[in-house]
Nucleic acid binder design. Structure first.
Lengths: 212, 212
DNA sequence: GAGCTAAGACCGACTAGTTGGTCTGTTTAA
DNA sequence: TTAAACAGACCAACTAGTCGGTCTTAGCTC
C-alpha cells in the first residue's frame, strides 16, 4: 500500500531518534532499520529535516485537538483544567517516543518548519493560560497566582514526565495523572472552591489511599 | 595561563551547544569561535565527547553541592525544601547555558561518561525524595501524596523553566522562585502545618500582592 | 480475460562536502 | 634545556542527498 512504507519509516526513526537523537542517527541507519533504501526514503520525504517536522507536527496537532475538545466539554475552569491534564498525560502511553523527540530534538528543526510548530505550541499554552485566567476571574482559583508562571509550571511538571515515565513502572499513567490533578488543584483552588462538592473527586484524600 | 584557553573553549562551546545542539556544532566551529586551533582543542580535551562531559559534570556537581548545603542548614523539611528550590532556581541566572546543554544534550553523552552523570543526578533526586518523605513522617506534608511522583513533579516543574526563562523577562528569578515555593507548599503542607507561623512567609497571600 | 501503457514506488551505486581526530611540527616560558 | 601549550595541514570515515534505472500495479483497449 502507498503509505505503508512512509509510516514504517516514521515509526522506525521515531524510536531511533528517541534513543540516539536526531543527529545521532543517519539516513543510512534509518533506511536500513526500516528495511528500505535511500530511494524509498527520499521518495517519501524531501529531506531528513522534513521527516523531523512530520513527527513534530503529527504530535503537536494531536495534543492541540485534545485540549480544544477538553475546554468545550466543560463549564467550570477547574473541570477544564482537570480534563486538559488528564488528556495530555494519557498521551504518554500512546506517544512516548513522539514526545521525547518533540522535546529533545526541536532545536534541530529547520527555520521553515520551526515556525509552524512554534505557533501550535503557543496556541496550546494560550489555551491553558486562558483556563487559568478564567478560573481566577470566576473565583475558583486563588487570585494571587501568576497566570503565566503557574501555567508554565503546570506544563513543565507534566512535560517532564517524558524523562522518567515508563509504561511498566509501578504506577499507571492514570494514577500519575490523578496525582498531578490533586497536586495542582490543591494549590490553585481557593478555600471556598475546595468545598465545592463537584470538585471533591479530584482530591486524593477523598479516594482510596495511595502510598509512596 | 594554563587553564585560560580551556575555560575559553568551554564557555564558547557552551553557548554554541545551547543554540545549535551538540551535533549542530563542529569542532572546527568551536576552535574558530574560541580563537584557537585543533591542536589547542585536543591538547585540553581527549575528544569532543569529553568536552560535553566536562560541561555536564561541572553543572551537576555545583547543583548537588548546593542542595547538600540546603539540607544541613535547616531542621524543618518545609524549610529544607524551600531552600533547595530557591537555590536551584537561582542557578538559572548563573548557568542558563549549562542547564540547557545539560537537559538537551545528555542523550549524546558517551556511555563511559554517562554513568557518572547519571549517578549524581540520582543522588540529587534522592535528596529531594528524602526531604519529602521526612516531611510526611513529621506531619508537615500531606500523607496521601506519593514521594516519587511529587518529587519528580517538583523537579520537572523547576527544570522546565530553562525552556522559557529569560534574564530580561518581566519577572526576576527570585519572584519566580517564590511562586514555585508558594505553589508547591500550598499543595504539600497539611492544614495544620499551614498554620505554623514559621512557614507563613512562604505563602504569596501573606506578601505584597503580585498579579499576572 | 489478455496485452499494453504509464506512472508511482522503490532501489542502490555514486558524489561532494563535512566530520572528529591525528600528527608533525613550532612557539613559549620556566 | 625541556616540557607543556599551541598551530594547522592532513586523513579516513561518514554524511545528506542525487540520479539513472527497475519493479509493480491500476486502468485502458480490444
Amino acid at each position: 500500500m502507498a503509505t505503508e512504507l512512509k509510516e514504517q519509516i516514521i515509526n522506525t526513526s521515531l524510536f531511533l531518534f528517541e534513543k540516539h537523537g536526531f543527529h545521532g542517527v543517519s539516513v543510512n541507519q534509518i533506511v536500513k532499520a526500516s528495511g528500505t533504501s535511500k530511494g524509498g526514503f527520499y521518495h517519501h520525504f524531501q529531506s531528513k529535516d522534513e521527516l523531523l517536522f512530520v513527527i513534530h507536527d503529527y504530535f503537536i496537532s494531536y495534543v492541540l485537538t485534545n485540549a480544544e475538545k477538553a475546554i468545550v466539554s466543560s463549564t467550570y475552569p477547574t473541570d477544564k483544567l482537570q480534563k486538559i491534564i488528564k488528556s495530555f498525560v494519557t498521551v504518554f502511553d500512546l506517544y512516548k517516543a513522539h514526545i521525547s523527540v518533540f522535546y529533545q530534538e526541536s532545536t534541530y528543526l529547520k527555520p521553515k518548519y520551526e515556525e509552524t510548530i512554534k505557533q501550535k505550541r503557543q496556541t496550546y499554552r494560550d489555551i491553558i493560560f486562558a483556563v487559568i485566567q478564567e478560573g481566577i476571574d470566576l473565583g475558583e482559583f486563588r487570585p494571587e497566582i501568576s497566570v503565566s508562571i503557574i501555567g508554565m509550571s503546570i506544563i513543565g511538571m507534566i512535560n517532564w514526565s517524558y524523562k522518567w515515565y515508563k509504561k511498566d513502572g509501578e504506577k499507571s499513567i492514570e494514577e500519575i495523572a490523578d496525582m498531578y490533578v490533586d497536586f495542582i488543584l490543591q494549590s490553585l483552588l481557593t478555600e471556598k472552591a475546595k468545598q465545592n462538592p463537584e470538585f471533591q473527586s479530584y482530591f486524593l484524600h477523598n479516594r482510596l489511599p495511595t502510598g509512596t
